[in-house]
Design a protein around this nucleic acid. Structure first.
Lengths: 139, 139
DNA sequence: TTGCGTGCAAAGGTTTTGCATGGCA
DNA sequence: TGCCATGCAAAACCTTTGCACGCAA
């Protein structure tokens, strides 16, 4: 039943990094760059292959964020909190804000209950203008 | 004030196809293939460039759908109201739902008030699964 | 005629595949 | 030892850019 294959240092390094960053999402190049800096070189081929396996096992999620060219991966923490994770993307400065908010979670349930639409939280991005940019713009 | 440029048969052919398929989304290669079959060859470069312009003008929307590698485009009709309501995009059937809902508007104000983020309603799209697809999927 | 529009080719970036070697069990 | 894992190189894609030519106004 254990289909996770051999225990190798590459697999562990990738998994460690994903877990370490489970509150946000990372790209393959980010994983690659980080491991390189750590002194643990892992070929991108290996990273892609492990991510594919982890996807099948449901240990990570894959999604694309509008405006980016590469896929994003995030460790799939099965515990409560992580499913209520939203993204706010500032159209001005490009900043990506990770938002945990009860109001938004509730709206989500409302849309499912009253409109029958199940929102994919990991894929949905709110576009707009962040606080900092709004300030500097108004001036 | 008319920034739509010259009237060319390529531009018209692309626009026609988008309008014809305004109920779902299409990829660049689908546009290219269709026009090729129609006997109207249009280079992909031209298609990309027109789509970029149409995006700027707000005449089309751009999406990414999980499982696909290429971007999806959809004609944006009824321009008016779209600045005042949300959009739900079904990842299964491609349907675009225009949602007028007080709950959601309120959440919008909450995000502006408590998180300082002004959501751009025209650009923001909620990805997910619509009621019909959810039913047929569960069987 | 003027200047944008077009399309080919090439470049840039991400992801996948082939194949020989390396390493876990 | 037997296999899967790894990583390099190359291929396969999607998208963008450079440049010369075409065409709308």
């Amino acid at each position: 039943m254990n289909n996770s294959g051999y225990k190798t240092k590459q697999r562990q390094a990738i998994l460690d990094f994903l877990i370490e960053n489970k509150d946000s999402h990372v790209t393959v190049s980010q994983i690659s760059d980080y491991l390189e800096e750590e002194g643990t070189h892992v070929g991108v081929t290996t990273i892609y292959r492990h991510l594919d396996k982890l996807l099948e096992q449901g240990l990570v999620r894959k999604y694309t964020v509008d405006g980016t060219t590469s896929a994003c991966f995030q460790y799939a923490d099965d515990e409560e909190g992580c499913k209520e994770h939203f993204h706010l993307k500032c159209e001005k400065c490009g900043k990506l804000i990770h938002l945990n908010c009860d109001h938004v979670s509730e709206m989500c349930r409302h849309i499912l209950g009253d409109h029958g639409f199940r929102i994919d939280l990991f894929r949905t991005v709110f576009y707009g203008i962040c606080e900092d940019c709004a300030k500097s713009q108004t001036v």
